[in-house]
């Protein structure tokens, strides 16, 4: 057995090397961003200033290591120059609001559409699939119409409310719950457990992986809102999340952008490490209707 495993490993050396290379290439942009955060603001500004030179034989230097490791960028982002931090807090609030709301509304919806039998159930589920495959440019329009009618444009609610019923996550949760064996729920029914008890005691605990997956993917989306704030908050750029504001703050390179970017990426790292295993388990597709 041992020998065969070793032989198997030996055989895959080229594939392993290739894949590790791809993995390194994928990580490189993030790693370099983190490295640049430890340059002093003057040094990084000077370096970024060498961009956009269209002369025949001048190149940007390849820099990875700072002349002196400096925490000045972080100091300015966090202590003296708090503009990035302000938008960062907006992002945190939006993300927290969206995730909390989704966890209240979507598992219950998916439960209703998977563990109950009623007329029109599959039609409803198919309607959700249709909404899910509509491009964002399309679904944005109805949201704007409602937000305008409710006078919510240019308020934080415009960002949070439409996200709460994200059709993709409803779909993902439902697919997972459809895979929960009917016998388990039937057994609970025989023990005279009602729908609510079943939901809280059986379905939710069993759905942990998909809930983790949803949390991670939804975090990725909420932490990276771009189109929504640009459309829903046209006259309140102070309410922008960092995901939009950052693009504008970096136009006039003041030298602290990479520390800002590093701080902005950091929560994603934690979310990722926390939910890594769930994601492998949670994306399970039972059936396509």
């Amino acid at each position: 057995m041992q020998a065969s495993v070793r032989r198997l490993r030996g055989r895959h050396v080229p594939a392993r090397l290739l894949l590790s290379l791809i993995a390194v290439l994928l990580l490189l942009p993030i790693a370099v961003t983190l490295l640049y955060a430890f340059f002093s603001p003057e040094e990084i500004r000077a370096y970024m200033g060498t961009r956009n030179r269209y002369t025949a034989d001048s190149f940007m230097a390849l820099r990875l290591i700072p002349e002196t490791v400096s925490l000045m960028q972080f100091y300015r982002v966090l202590i003296t120059d708090r503009e990035i931090l302000r938008y960062f807090i907006n992002s945190v609030l939006y993300t927290a609001g969206i995730l909390a709301g989704q966890l209240l509304a979507l598992p219950a919806l998916a439960y209703g559409l998977s563990c109950f039998r009623f007329r029109g159930r599959d039609a409803l589920a198919f309607g959700i699939v249709l909404l899910m495959v509509l491009p964002f440019q399309v679904t944005m329009v109805p949201s704007v119409l409602t937000l305008r009618a409710l006078n919510l444009l240019n308020t934080p609610w415009a960002i949070v409310l439409p996200m709460l019923s994200a059709p993709f996550f409803a779909f993902l949760l439902r697919q997972y719950m459809l895979g929960i064996p009917a016998e388990i729920i039937e057994a609970a029914q025989i023990d005279s457990a009602g729908p609510l008890k079943c939901f809280l005691r059986i379905v939710i605990p069993m759905s942990r992986p998909v809930l983790g997956t949803m949390a991670a993917l939804s975090f990725a989306e909420s932490w990276n809102l771009v189109e929504q704030p640009l459309t829903y908050l046209t006259s309140r750029s102070d309410l922008y999340p960092l995901s939009v504001a950052f693009g504008q703050l970096t136009r006039n390179m003041s030298g602290i952008e990479f520390a800002g970017a590093a701080l902005f990426i950091l929560p994603s790292l934690f979310v990722y490490l926390f939910f890594q295993e769930d994601i492998m388990e949670g994306i399970r597709v039972a059936d396509l209707r």
Partner: peptide, 9 residues
């Protein structure tokens, strides 16, 4: 998971 705006630089 990395935000698009943070990667643009």
């Amino acid at each position: 998971l990395a935000p698009a705006s943070a990667m643009v630089l």
